[in-house]
Design a protein around this nucleic acid. Structure first.
Lengths: 203, 203, 203, 203
DNA sequence: AATGAATGAGAATTCATTCAT
DNA sequence: AATGAATGAATTCTCATTCAT
């Protein structure tokens, strides 16, 4: 792992840990064992470093959604695959998920916001295609609110995973415990598959 | 409205608009037409001002949940009332919703976090009581995941309302348009009532 | 002298001494025995502090030119008064004269440049009026190049006073010696009065 | 043109354009299409690169003055030749003229200053010799202030050419216009020849 | 209760220079 | 001779807080 990658990794870790505003470039450079100036050298600025992280992340998600969309599986299997993928993904990136929204809200960098939105729109469209496809094949109900159904999928996981102190204390789930975490992931997959099937599938 | 209230109001407005870190005490004092020093004078520090806002907010929510729980309505009506209340509430406080989680993540003030969690736990318990009640009366299914069901309720609304640029661009919803906003609220209420009834109610 | 004035005074001193770029806000705040932040507090930024200095200075010059222009003296007396005024002025502000041009050349702040030019234009017009008046009264020759005559007046003094190492070493004039300095001022006044009278006055 | 010369050329161009402090070694290396490190490699440091530029420039001037001094022409012709030479020279090097003084004032490199002063002293002595020669031959008046006369020559041109925004706006002269520029040079030569002859030549 | 001035710490960024190749 | 990566020092500015009134 070269310096540039080390910086990226350190930034990802810290930015979620403490938020974008609370993470200083010095923190990042210390963790990455790189000189402060290297951040400007490689990424131009703190903000652009952040943009690079988002870019990488969103593209990654996009590829996974597209992959599921392009399989030959029936719609209900695709739904299950999406739930599984999303739960795994958001959990494994719990350190990152959430910041996007947090920073989106801080309107001080319209350019960055625009970029994030573009990424998200792309991912969203890819996701929508899968549901529309299920509707066309008359496996999914026609009269569902596609946008809000996606909001339920993502929002539920986000709610569980994001504000982790709440998760781990309000929801009485122990943190740092891999086993318990896997249990929770299973619970989430089951809950979401159940609620979404009930909501989506024709009877 | 006295100076203290003016400061509180200004803080609420700005902190959501730009986030906690991006809101300076000077911004707040300017908007409140108060002197900077008054913030320290009345609230002790910026952080304590923030805590005061959260306090007020959470207590407000708690009262509303308790009120619904204490009515004589049947469980399915209470569910509908909760959906309506949550949608209205989060929408009307969209300016505030989200910061809590955002700041929770920034771990720099454990005390503040603890306080937020206590508030939330209290609200959460009150909410859970309502669902457990419906289960006891055999209107709601017994084998549902109560915690995650609440996560779906709150998370779905949050997902729609929170990152509003995404809302307004990815979800193709026009901002600043009261009529469209009401339309969206109706959509959300319908979607959530539908999906939660399908999920919760015994057949 | 309050803090704001102290900062202004310290800035004037240092900026000429070492140039704008070589003077740090920390230097200024140290000399002014003020905190660094006070510079932003009072002036907004280093650049605006510089602008304030220029403003004050140019306005001061303008008033003096206007005063001479408005006296009842004959043109040749006004010329003498101008020479005297300019020599005294540039000498007494030798610490300041020159920076304007130095910074004008560094084109990085177009706004500042625009402002400086406006000030100078105003002063220049006032000066020109005096010479034109002498021409109208047929005391001064009609066929002189007014712009370049002013350039000679200002440029000569500037050349002597500005690059003071050259002045004091190339021109073999001892620095820091008040007596010698007065001698030099007399020399300059004599030289300029002589050369300008020879150039301007009708025979 | 090899790399070293390219760097020198790029440095000359940029340093005047933006001033010494505002020109970064990276700017220079970019324009010269050379690596940053080559500047240190060839010149030792940014400052020494600057010294090299000054050296070249001053020597060039010295040779021209000496050439005029060594011709057989009568003093008044030499004066005219000097005016012409100086106007042409300062104009053609307007990009460079002025920085010398600007940097001289920034006292942070005494060595560099000393060097510049030496160069200037040499040039100045050569110039003075020409005037003294004219005095000896009783063509020029004996009672003139030689130093200040030279200051008038150089200062007037500098005043016109140096702060070019003032020149081009206060003096109402269009920039970038070769024809107008030549016109201005002629004006200057005429003005200076006139004023200096009137001042210097015996009647 | 209220103010404006003042403080000191900490932020991101930029720069000339050097090192390893 | 030439390069790209890396360094550490320095700079301006912003912020929450406190002091004197």
């Amino acid at each position: 792992m070269n310096k540039q990658e080390q910086i990226l990794a350190a930034a990802k870790e810290l930015i979620y840990e403490k938020g974008y505003e609370n993470t200083t470039v010095r923190d990042i450079s210390n963790l990455a064992k790189a000189n402060v100036a290297m951040i400007s050298y490689y990424f131009g600025s703190k903000e652009k470093l952040f943009a690079a992280i988002i870019e990488e992340n969103a593209t990654n998600a996009f590829n996974k959604i597209e992959y599921i969309g392009n399989t030959e599986a029936p719609a209900e299997k695709k739904l299950e695959a999406l739930v599984t993928m999303y739960v795994d993904r958001i959990f494994s990136q719990r350190r990152f998920f959430g910041i996007i929204y947090r920073e989106l809200i801080s309107r001080n960098s319209p350019e960055l916001n625009k970029h994030i939105i573009e990424m998200h729109t792309r991912n969203y469209e890819s996701l929508k295609k899968i549901i529309n496809d299920g509707q066309q094949k008359e496996i999914f109900k026609a009269d569902i609110d596609v946008e809000l159904t996606i909001a339920t999928l993502v929002g539920t996981i986000g709610q569980v995973v994001n504000p982790n102190d709440i998760l781990y204390q309000v929801y009485k789930i122990e943190t740092e415990d891999k086993e318990k975490e896997n249990e929770l992931k299973l619970r989430l997959k089951k809950h979401l598959t159940g609620i979404l099937q009930c909501h989506l599938i024709q009877k």
